[in-house]
């Protein structure tokens, strides 16, 4: 669309858009900034913007006092573990649905989606009791199982929408050229499927990392990921803004970066392909 836009109008839009963008981002910026202040400076009036003594002591304090590394590791293990497990189960399923669609394929997909509509609180007690009775409460295994299952419909759906776009003709062409099945899978299908699998992987890691119903209810000291660890700041002692900020910054930074990379795929994944 080649519509001439006056420079003045563009400048005005730029100013407005940047102002709003900065306002929306401000709480994150403020958290990162506060993480480098001392506790006293964090509550100083008037608040200091950049003219304070920058310090890294909050980051070391958070680690010393609470074994931050352990919770971080829990988050990594749980989100990566549940995503890998989910992909292992979902890739064959989505593959079959996209390339060998049957009469029931649509119904199966819709049914899978419907399991996502089940509010977690509807099954909280049985899941809690099952894990308690099997000794899995407060273990990473329990959370990997639960997060795999709650995100499985999203993984299947997202992969399905990607696989469906791989043209079947290419396969036929490869076959005409005498490609073996092994060649077909390794050199024709995999390269075309990989971007979709990678996007699905990213989105699911983000969702699992930020999941805060099951992680809060099924963990205590041992398996608590960052969502649950941060929650412990809800009943703090003394000044804690700078420490909360440091813990928060470390908790959101990795996922913010992943999210920025995957923003294009986000829409498709989160709307089940309904908006492209």
């Amino acid at each position: 669309m080649a519509r001439a836009v006056s420079t003045r109008r563009k400048a005005a839009v730029t100013a407005l858009a940047w102002t709003i963008g900065i306002l929306i981002f401000f709480p994150i910026f403020w958290t990162i900034l506060t993480s480098f202040k001392t506790e006293a400076e964090a509550v100083a009036t008037p608040p200091s913007l950049f003219n304070f003594n920058w310090t890294l002591e909050n980051y070391t304090t958070v680690q010393d006092r609470s074994n931050y590394g352990r919770h971080f590791l829990n988050s990594v293990v749980i989100s990566l573990g549940s995503t890998f497990l989910g992909l292992v189960i979902a890739v064959p399923a989505a593959w079959a649905m996209a390339f060998v669609p049957g009469k029931q394929t649509k119904n199966v997909l819709m049914w899978m989606l419907s399991t996502k509509m089940l509010p977690p609180v509807g099954v909280l007690i049985p899941i809690y009791l099952i894990f308690r009775n099997t000794g899995l409460l407060d273990t990473r295994v329990a959370l990997i199982i639960v997060l795999t299952l709650i995100n499985l419909p999203i993984i299947v759906w997202m992969l399905y929408t990607y696989f469906r776009e791989i043209p079947g003709e290419i396969l036929e062409a490869a076959r005409m050229d005498g490609a073996t099945l092994r060649y077909e899978i390794l050199y024709v299908l995999t390269p075309m499927a990989l971007p979709g699998i990678a996007s699905t992987f990213l989105l699911n890691v983000i969702l699992a990392w930020n999941e805060a119903f099951w992680t809060l209810n099924l963990t205590a000291a041992n398996a608590a990921p960052l969502t649950a660890f941060i929650a412990s700041y809800s009943s703090p002692e003394g000044l804690f803004y700078a420490k909360l900020s440091a813990a928060s910054t470390m908790a959101i930074a990795p996922i913010l970066i992943l999210g920025w990379f995957s923003q294009k795929q986000l829409v498709r994944g989160l709307t089940f392909g309904a908006v492209k």
């Binding site: 709003i20 963008g21 900065i22 929306i24 981002f25 709480p27 994150i28 403020w30 958290t31 506060t34 983000i206 990392w209 930020n210 805060a212 809060l216 960052l226 969502t227 649950a228 941060i230 929650a231 700041y233 809800s234 804690f240 803004y241 909360l244 900020s245 928060s248 908790a251 959101i252 996922i255 913010l256 992943l258 999210g259 920025w260 923003q263 986000l266």
Partner: peptide, 22 residues
Amino acid sequence: RLLVIAPFFVMPTVSALVWKNM
């Protein structure tokens, strides 16, 4: 665009505690 979508990636416990306290 990056600034605007950032809050979506902040885990609920962080956003709630940051807003509540700070």
